[in-house]
Amino acid sequence: MLTLVKNERFTLLKNKLRRITSSAVIVLSLMTLSNAAISADSAAQEAQNTTPKNELKIKLSKLVSYSANFSQSISDISGKELQKSSGTLTLKTPNMLRWETQLPDETLLIADGTTVWNIDPFVEQVTVIKQTSISQNNPLMLLVSDDETQWNTVIVENKQSRFVVTSKNENANIVSLIIEFNGDELTRLQSTDRQQQKSLLVFSNIAQNESVSPSLFSFDIPKNYIIDDQRSQ
């Protein structure tokens, strides 16, 4: 019976990986943004030009590391809730993420800067992906560069404590992203995809710009784990 349950879980793994990586990519993109959005030398100059886009660049430039609990709700175009989850995340520039889901299932996703490791302890499997590949077909990830042409692919609006980032590409997988702050502290993220499915992340117990151990972003694969290495694809 356990084998049948594991097999069923295994068939759902790709769909779950897609959802997890979609949410994780959004968070990871913000850390990449914070690292590349604006240099210290140009901060004063950008501050003179108080457009919403420049305000977001400056805000993100202050985000170096981040740890928090998260609750996530995914809903369809009608507002019906499809999935709820909760867990913890830790981020550190440049490009490192630890995304750990505790409910409804235990999963772990680690991005170490070059490789993404998606670990499912129940089926004892780890899926290995190039970190650059999960950002493909996501125009919002073009913002990882401080190249102004990349920022020109989106429209940024400032609505009090919220920044609304909208892709100009009608074929984008993520069409809009709402980033909410309390002062300089990141508190909420909401994304909308091309099918109008919404993902809301709410953060609590936040520790921003505190020391983070590099060991959190590494993973030793147990000998009994199945390895699905997709880095050559």
Rank of each mutant, 00 (worst) to 15 (best):
L2Q: 15
L2E: 13
T3K: 14
V5A: 15
K6S: 09
N7Q: 12
N7S: 15
N7D: 15
R9F: 09
F10S: 06
L12W: 05
L13D: 10
L17P: 01
R18F: 13
V27I: 13
L28D: 12
S29Q: 09
M31Q: 11
T32V: 07
T32K: 06
N35G: 11
A37T: 01
D41N: 02
A43H: 06
A43N: 03
A43C: 04
N49D: 09
N49A: 07
P52Q: 13
P52M: 09
K53A: 02
K53S: 04
N54S: 11
K57L: 00
K57I: 02
L60G: 00
L60S: 00
S61Y: 02
V64L: 08
S65D: 00
S67Y: 01
A68E: 01
A68K: 01
F70K: 03
S73P: 07
E81P: 06
L82M: 15
Q83T: 14
K84C: 01
K84E: 04
S85C: 09
S86P: 03
S86E: 13
S86F: 02
S86M: 12
L89F: 02
T93M: 03
N95V: 00
L97K: 00
L97S: 02
W99D: 01
E100I: 04
L103H: 12
D105K: 10
L108N: 06
L109K: 07
I110T: 06
A111Y: 05
V116W: 08
N118T: 07
I119P: 07
I119E: 08
Q125K: 12
Q125F: 08
V126S: 01
V126N: 02
T132L: 06
T132V: 00
S133M: 08
I134M: 00
S135Q: 01
Q136Y: 06
L140V: 08
L140M: 13
L140C: 05
M141S: 11
L143Q: 01
V144I: 10
S145R: 03
D146F: 03
E148M: 11
N152Y: 10
T153V: 11
T153A: 15
V154N: 03
E157T: 13
N158I: 05
F163R: 04
V165W: 00
T166V: 10
T166I: 10
T166S: 13
K168H: 01
A172L: 08
V175Y: 02
S176E: 09
I178R: 03
I178S: 13
I179P: 06
I179N: 02
F181K: 00
E185D: 14
L186V: 01
R188C: 08
R188K: 15
R188W: 06
T192R: 07
R194M: 14
S199Q: 10
L200T: 12
F203H: 04
S204T: 15
I206M: 04
Q208A: 04
Q208P: 05
N209P: 10
N209C: 06
N209L: 11
V212D: 03
V212Q: 08
P214N: 15
S215M: 11
S215N: 12
D220K: 15
P222A: 10
I226L: 14
I227G: 08
I227A: 01
D228L: 12
Q233P: 08
Q233A: 06
